[in-house]
């Protein structure tokens, strides 16, 4: 079996160094194989962005100080890397498209400057030609003109594609996409997903795809991990999770997705509120909202692999097949 490209073990991120400080991520573990696309799904505030940014050590100093556990990139621990080693990985091996594409471009620099800055590191010789090619690859018309423009002169969809071009500029082995489609309207969303899928194939990348949206997961991911309150509660191959979701939270999420998957929607609200950081219940964090909860759920649920690759943390896995009707 091949080694995982990225392997996260017991990653915990607290708000500050204090061992009792509230945690945003709580013992998160996951593996990502070369070329694989893993979807990361969960309600707002469950810690998806924090997880994605941890991989590149982009969290604020406060969160960085409160980070424990391992993030192994091709066997090397990102947490222990020197600034120089980390820089070599950023962009060239792992890249990321941030959640807010509108704010991701420097407002006082032209697109060309910002794009060439990324291309320069990959040792391309003719930077201007490379920059034009990079914009053409993400379907931006008349790229030569666009290079001279400033971010505020462009539409949201255009900026999103430019941010993707910057993310891909150094031909990374892993691209982390943080909800790259939520800021876009439905038709552009669809085009953009197609584009990402094509680019993934062309560059032979692995992807960590953060989203609110099971429709997007179905379209682009191989596996999916469901997050709740800073933990991964269930993970497995996409077809398996869709056919036989076993965690009550996953089932609740899927039950509320419209059966026609052509109109992707944000995750609808389940009865009750997700707990705020620092106010998360002990044991299974879902128990106040869970229909299947028992007294047992007050203590940390066990982890079980109920089918090959299908893992969940729950005292009472739901075995009946999910009925999408």
């Amino acid at each position: 079996m091949t080694e995982p490209l990225l392997s996260i073990r017991d990653l915990t991120v607290r708000v500050g160094k204090h061992p009792e400080a509230p945690s945003i991520l709580d013992r998160v573990s996951l593996d990502l194989m070369p070329g694989e696309t893993l979807g990361l799904v969960g309600e707002s505030g469950s810690g998806k962005s924090t997880l994605g940014m941890s991989v590149l050590r982009l969290n604020s100093p406060r969160l960085a100080a409160g980070t424990t556990g391992q993030i192994l990139w091709q066997g090397r621990d990102v947490q222990k890397m020197s600034a120089r080693q980390l820089r070599r990985i950023r962009g060239e091996e792992i890249s990321m498209i941030l959640q807010d594409p509108m704010a991701s471009l420097n407002p006082v620099q032209s697109i060309g400057v910002q794009l060439r800055e990324a291309l320069r590191r990959s040792g391309k010789r003719n930077l201007s030609a490379a920059a034009e090619a990079a914009l053409a690859e993400v379907n931006i018309p008349s790229p030569a003109d666009r290079l001279r423009a400033y971010p505020h002169q462009m539409s949201g969809g255009m900026r999103q594609r430019i941010v993707s071009a910057i993310g891909l500029a150094q031909d990374p082995n892993l691209l982390i996409c943080d909800e790259p489609t939520t800021a876009l309207d439905a038709t552009i969303q669809y085009q953009f997903l197609e584009l990402l899928a094509a680019l993934r194939a062309a560059h032979d990348m692995a992807m960590l795809f953060i989203t609110h949206d099971f429709g997007v997961v179905a379209r682009i991911c191989d596996r999916v991990a469901v997050m709740y309150a800073g933990r991964i509660v269930e993970t497995g191959p996409v077809a398996e999770i869709f056919a036989r979701p076993a965690h009550p939270y996953t089932r609740a999420l899927l039950a509320s997705v419209p059966s026609t998957r052509h109109a992707p929607r944000r995750l609808p609200v389940i009865e009750g509120q997700p707990p705020a950081v620092g106010n998360r219940p002990r044991g299974c964090p879902f128990h106040p909202r869970c229909a299947a909860a028992t007294d047992q759920c007050q203590s940390v649920p066990p982890r079980a692999e109920i089918r090959p690759g299908h893992v969940l943390d729950c005292w009472h896995p739901q075995e009946i097949a999910h009925d999408p009707a």
Binding site: L56, A83, A103, N106, P107, Q114, E117, I166, Q170
Partner: peptide, 27 residues
């Protein structure tokens, strides 16, 4: 320094100096 465009500059693999001087300072 906590803005998204500085994060993107870091994602590109720029050195801390470039991040501060070229991206954060101007703004």
């Amino acid at each position: 320094l906590s803005s998204e465009y500085v994060k993107l500059a870091r994602i590109k693999g720029l050195s801390e100096w470039s991040v501060v001087l070229r991206h954060a300072l101007g703004n």
